[in-house]
Amino acid sequence: MAQISPDRIAVSTWSLHRLLGETYPHDLTTSEVGPMQETYGAGEESLLGLPSVLANHGYHRLEIVSFHMRSRDPIYLAELRDQLRIANVRLQTLLIDAGDISHPEHGARDQAWIAGWIEVANELGAENARIIAGKQKPTRDALDRSVKALTALADGNSGSSVRLVTENWFDLLAEPAHVHYLLDKLDGRVGLLGDFGNWGGPDKYSDLKSIFGRAELCHAKASFLDGDLDEADFGACVALAEEAGYKGPYTLIFDSEIPGEWNGLAIERDFIKSFGI
């Protein structure tokens, strides 16, 4: 095709956290949503209003970070789902952004907490729910605790249209061998969301290429310096993903003071399109 399909471009609420302003930090000891904090100021838009704004900017896939949700009340969830439907925006992923199922002491607690958020993903009609595989050092015991917990979460979500995925993130999955070990043990029960920005070092590109053949989703995070896109790094990441056979959507991740959130997202989107994929 001449250019990347718009259906392969998504936006995360993380990229619009200055626009949204408010967050609702998680407390893993309760299923209640925490009190509002103006983490990035008062904000200019609510999460309920975001789908129509997103559509007006030409985006029709959205990922919502769990700490951007002010309520888990069924009425609020139904209203958010309606706003997504009216704006013709697909809820690609609910990013469950806390918990450590690999923790030897708190893993069971966090697993139960995450299960509650998977229920939220189902109520919202999300296509995917991203779970953190764990934050412990990648010992065999920690990896196996994660496999056991992820398997149980997948069992609990059996029959749902929501696909569970995890991410190459934190110490547990800080290198390809551990990602492959986990996914092999899970035998397709849980998928992979590959993130460009979570790994670094001299082997960053070869490491990412090693896992992107298995990725179903991608966080396409780019770096900006004085408002200018780091084209060399971002281009290398997009190229390695395509070379590895990645066929999923690219979720634009922007986190810089300049050139502004919508402008930064447009720069990332247009750069990906320039590949003529």
Rank of each mutant, 00 (worst) to 15 (best):
V65Y: 00
R72N: 12
S210W: 04
H57C: 09
N122L: 07
G134E: 04
G201M: 07
N263H: 12
G49Y: 09
V11T: 00
I253C: 00
N263S: 14
T39E: 12
L95K: 01
V33F: 07
E63Y: 00
L153Y: 08
H103F: 11
F212N: 05
D195L: 02
G197H: 03
D230Y: 05
Y76T: 07
E79V: 07
E175M: 13
L193G: 00
G116V: 10
V165E: 05
N122R: 15
N168S: 04
R269P: 01
G99V: 08
T93M: 15
Y59C: 02
Y40V: 06
A220N: 06
A220I: 03
G49D: 11
G188A: 10
A2V: 14
L91C: 08
D27V: 09
L225V: 15
P104C: 11
L193P: 02
S158Y: 10
G156H: 02
A129L: 00
R85C: 11
G248I: 04
Y59R: 04
F275E: 08
L172G: 02
V120L: 06
T13F: 00
S160A: 05
M1K: 14
A152C: 13
E105G: 09
Y181P: 08
W199E: 06
F254Y: 15
G276N: 14
E268D: 10
A42S: 15
N168L: 03
W169C: 05
I267K: 02
G227R: 08
R72A: 14
I9D: 01
V238F: 11
A177H: 10
I114M: 06
N198L: 03
N198E: 05
M69C: 11
E38S: 14
E216R: 02
D228L: 15
I277Q: 12
F234N: 04
V162M: 06
G107S: 10
T151G: 13
P6S: 09
G41R: 07
R90E: 14
D270H: 04
L229Q: 09
P249T: 00
S46E: 03
Q136V: 06
R214V: 06
D255V: 00
S223V: 15
D203P: 06
A133V: 07
I277H: 13
N263K: 13
W117T: 01
L143G: 01
E167V: 07
G191T: 03
L77C: 08
E63W: 00
R81M: 10
H68N: 14
S102P: 10
R18S: 10
R109C: 11
A55R: 07
D207T: 05
S102E: 07
W262C: 06
A215G: 06
G245E: 13
G21C: 04
P249H: 00
S161E: 15
G276Q: 11
N157V: 06
I258E: 15
P176E: 10
A2L: 13
A115Q: 12
G213C: 09
